[in-house]
Write a protein that binds this DNA or RNA. Structure first.
Length: 332
DNA sequence: GCCACCGGTGGC
DNA sequence: GCCACCGGTGGC
């Protein structure tokens, strides 16, 4: 019945117009209050880099505890790397995480509707002590992965950190708190370490997308693999790795879960398809003759047609646009 | 042309 | 709702 939370925080570099208040404020960005399309700021890894704005992070929209006063030491926190383990957290066997120093190069998406914002990236690895529940920074991604691999059988305690912090005990203040200055994500426990020479990459997506993150494995050859199917195929084509002992059990594409609710766009409700009969009539018909999918009824950032698309999935057209016939359904 | 990032599907 | 997979595409 114990829970394991590994966390990694994503410090992010805030955009100038996201910084409210004094420059001392630890966070220039609160997603909660952000207008939908001012999604300009984002995370850039800070840990272990010379980034000079380590304080700017993605805020967590909820689950904030405000326990202690160490909140504004984030500039320092953000320069460490850590992992947390939370035996008390809900959701058996989960691990929280926040951000990854290794992947901390500034990333930008390049999608039309996202105005080249910087994307979040992992800035710190943390694990919660199973005894005192304080979050402890883990110095490296590798150490984090090592801890995560056996977190269920080998819970993390402050003493576990003696390997890199000889004096640490449960009496010491937490390294990090969920103060809203970072994006927090709940990692999965017991994920195997990647095979030697391989790297497991976690890429956090931008807010409001359809998924929170993606996992990639990078083979020693540099080849990026993005699913078990691809790994299997790759290993078949490169038996030398198998000969070295690489096996499928060393791979997992499980992604963490964002602590912040609504970070990921909810998937529209999909009505069960009754046999082969879907009545496309009397749905919505705001799509014009050109098949223009820019909604007139929709709000910015709320592409209603997507839910429509779901309703019509059996009649999906090859292009992203609905045919005029499909759209001609508002029989009101 | 490559590839990082995102959308969307089907299955459960 | 979550997960796994993979196609599409803008930017480089």
């Amino acid at each position: 019945m114990e829970r394991n939370h590994l966390d990694f925080a994503s410090p992010e570099k805030a955009d100038h117009n996201d910084i409210h208040g004094s420059s001392v404020t630890s966070c220039g960005y609160s997603m909660k209050h952000e207008p939908k399309d001012s999604r300009v700021s984002a995370g850039s890894g800070v840990i272990g880099t010379s980034n000079q704005n380590p304080r700017d992070v993605i805020s967590s929209a909820e689950g904030e505890e405000h326990n202690t006063e160490d909140e504004d030491n984030n500039s320092e926190d953000a320069q460490k790397q850590l992992v947390l383990y939370d035996p008390a957290a809900v959701g058996a066997g989960e691990i929280e995480l926040v951000a990854d120093p290794v992947d901390s190069q500034p990333r930008r998406n390049s999608f039309p509707n996202y105005a080249s914002r910087i994307l979040p990236s992992v800035g710190a690895f943390t694990v919660q002590c199973a005894n005192c529940f304080k979050w402890r920074l883990i110095p490296t991604k590798e150490k984090y992965e090592e801890i995560r691999e056996h977190i269920l059988e080998q819970p993390f305690y402050c003493e576990t950190a003696h390997e890199w912090r000889a004096e640490l005990s449960c009496n010491d203040p937490p390294d990090l708190t969920q103060d809203g200055s970072r994006l927090w994500a709940i990692d999965k426990p017991n994920i195997a370490q990647p095979p030697p020479g391989w790297e497991r990459l976690l890429r956090i997506r931008g807010e409001g997308g359809t998924r929170f993150a993606d996992v990639y494995y990078v083979a020693p050859s540099g080849k990026r693999l993005r699913s078990m199917v691809e790994v299997e195929k790759y290993l078949q084509e490169h038996p030398e790795y198998v000969a070295q002992g690489v096996s499928m059990s060393q791979f997992s594409f499980q992604i963490p879960r964002p602590l912040q609710d609504n970070y990921v766009k909810k998937r529209p409700y999909r009505p069960a398809l009754a046999h082969d009969e879907i009545e496309p009539v009397n749905r919505i018909a705001w799509i014009d003759q050109d098949g223009d999918t820019d909604l007139r009824l929709g709000m910015p950032g709320v592409p209603l047609f997507e839910s429509l698309n779901q309703s019509f999935k059996k009649k999906r057209t090859p292009s992203k646009r609905m045919s005029n016939a499909d759209a001609a359904c508002k029989s009101s």
